[in-house]
Amino acid sequence: MQAPQIYVDADACPVKEEVVKVAERFGLVVTFVSNGGLRPSRDPMIRNVVVSKSADAADDWIVDNAKANDIVVTADIPLAARAVAGSAHVLGPTGKPFTPDNIGMAVAMRDLKQHLRETGESKGFNAGFSRQDRSRFLSALDEQCRRAVAAAQT
């Protein structure tokens, strides 16, 4: 099996540096996918892909390119659901894994929150990104990389 790669939904991703740090430790290629504004890297293990500004262009590119056992980093629940369906390992930037066991509930909660915002029942404030979130993410990504690399070697 081919070595896993990491795909990052890079627009507004707060853990880009952490992804690079963990990927270097495992020797994995990282692809940042964005609608623009990515800082180029000289590191041959870091790729930047700029897609059109259409609504789901980055999501579509990631789903079209991520393979089973690759790792996808995103806070976008619909993208997470599509990547899980493609057998990728999926992590949110707070370190929360999205799996076949929990993605249905995540989609349902997203839809409920969207409905509540649309009806004015909720203002839709998200909690700020904390140091604990960053730490949890580093630990979770390290674990996902270990699993993906081990699976690729069997």
Rank of each mutant, 00 (worst) to 15 (best):
P44T: 08
D133E: 07
A23Y: 00
V49W: 01
Q2Y: 12
A88C: 15
R42Y: 11
F98S: 12
A127W: 01
M105Y: 11
R131H: 07
L28G: 02
E121W: 13
L38S: 03
V72Y: 11
D60S: 10
S34M: 03
A85F: 12
V50H: 06
P4D: 07
F32Y: 08
S122G: 10
V63S: 04
Q144N: 11
R117K: 09
V149N: 08
G120D: 06
S54G: 14
N35F: 02
A23Q: 04
T99D: 06
R25Q: 14
G36S: 06
A148N: 00
V107K: 08
E18D: 15
S41K: 08
R136K: 15
S130N: 04
V51Q: 02
A75K: 10
D111N: 11
L138Y: 13
D133P: 05
L141V: 01
N65E: 01
F129H: 07
I77R: 04
M109D: 10
G120F: 08
V50T: 15
M45R: 09
D11W: 09
A66Q: 07
V29E: 15
E121N: 12
K21N: 13
F98D: 09
T94P: 09
A108P: 00
V49G: 03
D60P: 00
N48V: 08
V63K: 03
P14L: 09
Q132F: 14
D133R: 01
D56N: 14
E118A: 14
Q114M: 10
I71T: 01
E121C: 09
L112Q: 08
T94Y: 08
I62A: 03
S87Q: 15
Q153P: 10
T94F: 02
A81S: 12
R117M: 14
C13L: 04
V107Y: 02
N48R: 03
V19F: 03
P14T: 10
L38N: 03
R42M: 05
C145G: 07
R134D: 04
V33S: 02
S52W: 03
R136C: 12
G104T: 10
V8E: 04
A85Y: 05
K53H: 15
S135F: 05
R117G: 06
